[in-house]
Design a protein around this nucleic acid. Structure first.
Lengths: 368, 368
DNA sequence: CTGTTAGCGCTTTCAG
DNA sequence: CTGAAAGCGCTAACAG
């Protein structure tokens, strides 16, 4: 699976790889070792360390000294066995995340939230539904967060009737009984088109997720439905002419789609694009010598991070991925804690006006 | 810690959060349950499931059926207790990774490698040295990979004399006895300057990591030394005039640094930049109306992914982060497996000629 | 070919 | 205030 960016990488190895005998670990000190060292019983050590019953200050000090001396730390594994919990959460992600920046926001926010609640975050890429179930059943993790969910998602169907806690970032076809955190994509796309319409644009282009308009697409993302609803609502309300151009949501395909779009529909004065496609759109316009926003406006639906990177900075409906991830993690933590949570949280959309939109040219010359 | 991208996010919650009594988990089936169901002993179940001794086909089938019926999966926690291993690795990263794209490459490659060896990857952000030791001592993880290492790195010093396996992606001041995987930054920066020199450039700009030239900087990254060596070697060899401009390695600071540089040294016809700063450099040149590479060449030292994104695509020395991460994970897996590995791997640098470099307007190429 | 048993390190009754 | 002992679920050594 390891992709190569280079010729076969003849790594220069200053190899000292001493192939010594498999060292059997000098084993870690246990609670018994501490007890022996302090001249008390194991349970006394235990209670001294987490004060669930009173200990004479003198004994307590001896225990603490022994802990210090032996560098003792209670084995998390043994604790977990006893408590029937692994104190870890799983983040289930596709092997190739749609966007690095988005994935990183989700990841760091989730890891920080889990960590603050003394849980470990494990990441699992590209797991089949029964592998996910296996993770849960073997108590590798107490619960999972699923991202990039589809309308018909076999992972969700596998989990739906199992007794394990999980939460979705995203939505799916049948939401009954699920705990989900999502973003109001309908409003997001409505706002994107609405913004351009209010600036006076009438002929727009829309880089639409590939497969979104294809009813037979089984794998399609649930949010694509909302995407289309938002776009249609704005189109109708403002009487817009919109040219659709499908693209996989990455830079390269956004680039190609924008080239097709501008070739086919030269009257377009504004483009709406999401994911990472905006970067491709901007590149296409640049290569044609069209300035943004003077010759063409662009609106994105993407993370603030991406929007701030581009030249010019992108007017966009920013995805609040950190907040969504924190919320999802907190919900999951409550569920693994035994609480019966069934909450469906929807984060609202706001448009952030940056540098990539302007009113269309008043007179549209035929030639450039 | 949760950063806000939006106004206070009044999330619309279709709340059904039934605050029911903390449900005590209907406990998972154990090996005993399976044994009872199949009418055999626990050890028979165990051996039937991992064939370490022969079982009559008839009994074996009964066991398999029972497993099926009860949906049994051996508890990873109990196994781990017995084997004194957690079968998980930790990736220790700074809270704010220097680059999303780079971090994602490291992360996905590491997770995939760990996963292929039946290990879990836990990610730990922003851990203090003794927290890392705690992780290891409590057997949350069997070993760790450290990234973004510094010349004087307290994390490394803490681990150096502890008995726990770890590997570095990067280097540090005292490398004796450590297992490390790194990239030849000296050669990388040499090649970047060398490339521009051979194209005929004489006046160059260098967006240098902030703190790299400051001898008192305690936190400085080890690779900055190599960076400076490579740059100096090229400067001397080709008799270059180089203007240094320090920047934190992100887009915004790269942008500011490039503006300062071009204001101060208008004769510069080529710029070398690393991390994410190139994106800022390109933005600065764009805003000044200078075309790349016609008016100014730019060379990066960055991941292929970033280099392919920019407009124009960036000539760069690409960091082979996937391969480095796979190598680091494999070394760590060998170490946690008990092997006495002390290997220091250095990946070589190659320049990839994309679209952002050309000979300067005035001069002709150097003859070498 | 199969069953019994001890024990991993910790927590928590139950006794004193 | 402290100790002894049982048991979480699994594995492997030790009987048959």
């Amino acid at each position: 699976m390891q992709l190569s960016t280079h010729p076969p990488a003849p790594r220069h190895s200053l190899a000292l790889s001493a192939m010594v005998k498999p060292t059997r670990e000098a084993h870690m000190p246990t609670i018994k070792d501490v007890a022996a060292h302090a001249g008390v019983s194991a349970s006394t050590v235990h209670y001294a360390l987490n004060g669930k019953r009173s200990i004479s200050p003198e004994v307590r000090q001896r225990v603490l000294d022994a802990v210090q001396a032996l560098n003792y730390s209670a084995s998390a594994v043994a604790q977990r066995l006893r408590e029937h919990r692994s104190y870890s959460l799983g983040l289930i992600a596709p092997e190739l995340p749609a966007s690095d920046a988005a994935m990183m926001e989700i990841l760091t926010a989730t890891a920080a939230t889990a960590s603050a609640a003394d849980h470990t975050l494990g990441i699992y890429l590209n797991q089949a539904p029964d592998q996910i179930l296996g993770l849960l059943r073997a108590q590798h993790v107490d619960g999972v967060i699923l991202i990039e969910t589809a309308h018909h998602d076999p992972r969700i169907e596998a989990l739906r009737h199992a007794p394990h806690p999980f939460v979705l970032i995203g939505q799916t076809g049948d939401m009954t009984g699920l705990t989900t955190v999502d973003f109001d994509f309908e409003q997001a796309f409505y706002l994107a088109f609405d913004h351009l319409a209010r600036l006076g644009h009438r002929h727009l282009g829309f880089i639409v997720p590939h497969g979104a308009t294809d009813d037979d697409q089984p794998q399609r993302k649930e949010n694509w439905y909302a995407t289309l609803r938002g776009y249609r609502r704005a189109r109708q309300e403002h009487d817009l002419h919109v040219e659709l151009e499908p693209a996989v949501l990455n830079i390269e395909d956004g680039h190609r789609a924008a080239l097709r779009l501008t070739a086919r529909a030269p009257r377009v004065t504004g483009i709406v694009a999401s994911g990472h496609t905006q970067v491709g759109v901007l590149r296409a316009l640049y290569s044609q010598g069209r300035r943004v926003p003077d010759d063409c406006s662009v609106v994105g639906v993407t993370t603030a991070q991406i929007a701030e990177w581009t030249i010019p900075r992108l007017t966009s409906v920013d995805l609040p991925l950190r907040e969504m991830s924190v919320t999802a993690s907190e919900l999951l933590l409550r569920k693994v804690g035994g609480e019966a949570v069934t909450e469906q949280v929807l984060f609202p959309a706001y448009l952030i006006d940056r540098e990539s939109t302007a009113p269309p040219r008043t007179a549209q010359p035929e030639s450039t």
